[in-house]
Amino acid sequence: MSGFDSNPFVDPVDVNPFQDPSITQATSGAAENNGEFNPFSAIDMGNHTGTTIPVSGSSSQPAVLPTSVEQSAQASAAAGQADLIRQQEELERKAAELERKEQELQNRAAGRATNTGAKENNWPPLPKFFPVNPCFYQDFEEDIPEEYRRICKRMYYLWMFHSATLFLNVMACLAYFTADAQNGVDFGLSILWFLLFTPVSFICWYRPVYKAFRSDSSFSFFFFFFVFFFQVAVYIIQCVGIPKWGNSGWIASISMIRINLAVAVVMMVVAGFFTVNACLGVILLKMVHSKYRRTGASFSKAQQEFSQGVLTSRTVQNVAAGAATSAAQGAFGRSQGN
């Protein structure tokens, strides 16, 4: 009966295929590996970095940047150093030039101090047999600094042109007088202007500007500006040519066209000379003023120079001493009379 009690559909041996040792080992190892595996762990990342990330390509790419930065820094440093060297050379050149000018001024001052008595007057350049000796000493190369030498020579040439114009004015007024006897006043005044204005202009505005450039004198500059301003005004009046004023200007020359054309032409030439004198006077006045502003002169300095010159003048000292002596004698006499 026992044979009939068994299940015909059941295997005679109860075998579990999942209990096979190989399967059990495989499944247990896979479970352990699956439970412990972390794809983001540092160990696994370290194991796979050599195969998955191209280290050589990523590290070699930015190597160009440090090289370019270093080259630009070296170029800027070299440019800055060259600029500093150029500035230093320019400063050394200016310092050498200033030292040379200072040495020239010192040598010139020393020469004037030691050779004041030895220098002889050389202007006007008169012959030896002439009874009148030169009255002034003039030497542009020795007395006038190089930066002022050209403008000082131009002022001297203007004075020479001024003197020549006054002489030609005498000739034109003489022709004016011969053409019309009523113009004798102009001829006489033209002689007076030539004899008076030629030396006075030399003493009153040319010598002051020469002394101003020679010794950087503020007082000489101010004296020159004051006198030369009136000289320019006189040039303009002479250029106009007012009748009976002794000037062969434009009005007088135009009035002679209908009387004597040749005399009118001569007078017009002289009027043109007066016009040139006026124009050159204005131009040189502005040029001297521009030079004056660079010298550092001032009105207070001019006052100080004037006061020092008055106090140290031997003539003023003698006059003051004589006045004080006479005043003391008068006071003593009054006291004795009382």
Rank of each mutant, 00 (worst) to 15 (best):
F194P: 00
A212Q: 00
T178N: 11
F221S: 07
H162Y: 06
A181S: 15
E147Y: 08
Y206V: 11
R207V: 14
N133A: 15
I191V: 13
S190M: 02
Y206N: 00
A179H: 09
L158Y: 11
A164P: 02
F219D: 06
F161S: 14
F177S: 13
C239D: 01
S215Q: 01
D186F: 12
S201K: 06
Q238M: 04
Y157R: 10
A164L: 02
F223S: 01
A212T: 03
D180G: 13
P127C: 03
Q231R: 11
F223I: 05
L126K: 11
C173W: 01
Y157D: 13
Y156R: 10
S163F: 15
N115G: 10
W205A: 04
A175M: 04
N183A: 14
F136Q: 13
Y137A: 05
F221K: 06
E141Q: 05
L126Q: 11
I203T: 11
G188L: 02
C152E: 10
E146Q: 05
M155Q: 07
P243S: 03
A164D: 04
S220N: 08
N121Y: 00
D143N: 09
M155G: 08
V232Q: 12
W193Q: 05
M160V: 08
S218P: 08
Y210K: 08
S215W: 02
T198A: 13
R214Y: 01
N133C: 10
F161L: 12
T114K: 15
P125M: 11
L189K: 08
S217W: 08
K119W: 11
V200M: 09
I151V: 08
L189V: 06
K211I: 00
S163M: 15
E146P: 03
V227A: 07
P124I: 07
I144G: 00
E120W: 11
F161P: 03
F228H: 00
S218H: 04
A179V: 12
C204H: 01
T165C: 03
T165S: 03
S190C: 09
M171Y: 00
Y157M: 14
C152R: 11
I236V: 15
N121E: 03
K128W: 06
F161E: 00
G117I: 04
Y210A: 01
F167M: 14
V185G: 12
T116M: 09
T178K: 14
L168N: 14
R207H: 10
R149H: 10
A164S: 01
T178C: 12
P145E: 10
F197N: 10
F202D: 00
N133V: 11
A233R: 03
M160A: 09
F225L: 01
S163E: 04
F187G: 15
F219K: 04
R207F: 04
F222A: 13
Q231E: 14
C239V: 03
Q231V: 14
F197Y: 14
M155D: 02
L196S: 08
F230N: 01
L158V: 06
F197W: 06
